[in-house]
Write a protein that binds this DNA or RNA. Structure first.
Lengths: 196, 196
DNA sequence: GAATTATTTTAATTCAGATTAAAATTATTG
DNA sequence: CAATAATTTTAATCTGAATTAAAATAATTC
């Protein structure tokens, strides 16, 4: 049986695969990405991927779960570090963007959620919804504590999350641009919500 | 030969098809949408679509061209009607959203541009880029005429267009929500850019 | 270093959904 | 209303990328 070290190796490879897949999906589109493409990035042949995943659907599904996880991780960290609503929001945006442009990225755009099989689709949708709700709660908290201007949290949340989710559409790994993105984007998004 | 009236009929049917396709792609994802699905919406069989389009790729391509056209139309109208940069921006956002939720929608999300064939891909990318540039120009003009606060137009443009482009991800034809969207979203997006 | 397990490969197979062909229907024109 | 063109259908075909099977290699364990 596998020792914990071997499990770690397996998990490491699997994560490498998910990142490679996310990269391919973002750059070539879902239908434009064959398992061959993903395997090429990893220096493997396509059937090798089946050692880690049941099929292509599951690969996308796992990419999306990972995307959701990283988003949640960013928000959790922001929540634990932030002083008030606005601070939490700014931190969350920064951390999330850092994930996208940093060495844990890229993060897959959730373009093909509807074509997942029902259980997977529901799970991913649930993760998305929860994340959205949690973000709205941050806005709400900020409004209450006076750090964020009053606003329609539902719409504002959608607006900001849309900007975030769209980033992989135009950011393709340019380091310099990534730097700017991390440093400037959060404040651009938050600008409309400051109280001063 | 076809009279102009018949050409109109053909064009009308083709537009119906593009709208049906956009609806399917947005709701079911690209890979989750078969030509059968699109045909079903129209009350036709799949091979009938080939009367209007060479293949599925071209169908997506035309959806994207149409998306770009409608965006451009919204911006053109805003430019011709707006008094200053901010006014143009607000009008553009409203008009574009009206298209999405109104009877000329839905507008396809450009998720699969990378999997188009090279010529089509380049053309669509060009349209996208141009639209982005034109929107940035509006921001720039607004900054110059004092109606829009100074900002990084590139990033701000990306932020706002991201929010716009993501709308079809969460808006699925609810009329009441559509109303709110048209009325509230533009100001939410513009809020960070006002000078007062 | 032999045995066992983990990982990857090469070589088929498979299959859903795109596409084509030919025929049928519907609309239009003179 | 016959003739022509436009649109759609039914019935095959085709295809490429996903998937499976079996074998080979690499890593690990004892």
């Amino acid at each position: 049986m596998a020792t914990s070290a071997e499990e770690t190796r397996f998990e490491l490879q699997k994560t490498r695969m998910l990142r490679a897949a996310a990269q391919c999906f973002n750059q070539k589109g879902y239908s434009g990405t064959s398992l061959r493409d993903v395997a090429d990035v990893l220096g493997l042949t396509d059937p090798a991927l089946y050692y880690y995943v049941r099929n292509k659907q599951e690969l996308v599904y796992l990419c999306y779960v990972r995307a959701a996880d990283l988003g949640r991780e960013a928000l959790d960290r922001a929540l634990s570090e932030g002083r008030d609503g606005m601070d939490v929001m700014l931190r969350y945006l920064r951390y999330h963007i850092e994930m996208m442009v940093g060495d844990r990225g890229p993060i897959a755009i959730m373009s093909e959620v509807p074509s997942l099989k029902p259980e997977h689709r529901e799970e991913v949708l649930q993760l998305s919804r929860t994340h959205g709700k949690n973000f709205e709660a941050v806005l709400q908290a900020g409004i209450r504590d006076g750090s964020i201007a009053d606003c329609n949290v539902r719409m504002t949340g959608n607006a900001i999350m849309g900007s975030i989710n769209w980033i992989p559409k135009w950011y393709h790994g340019d380091a310099e641009q990534g730097e700017k993105l991390v440093n400037e984007f959060p404040e651009i998004l938050a600008r409309g919500l400051s109280v001063d």
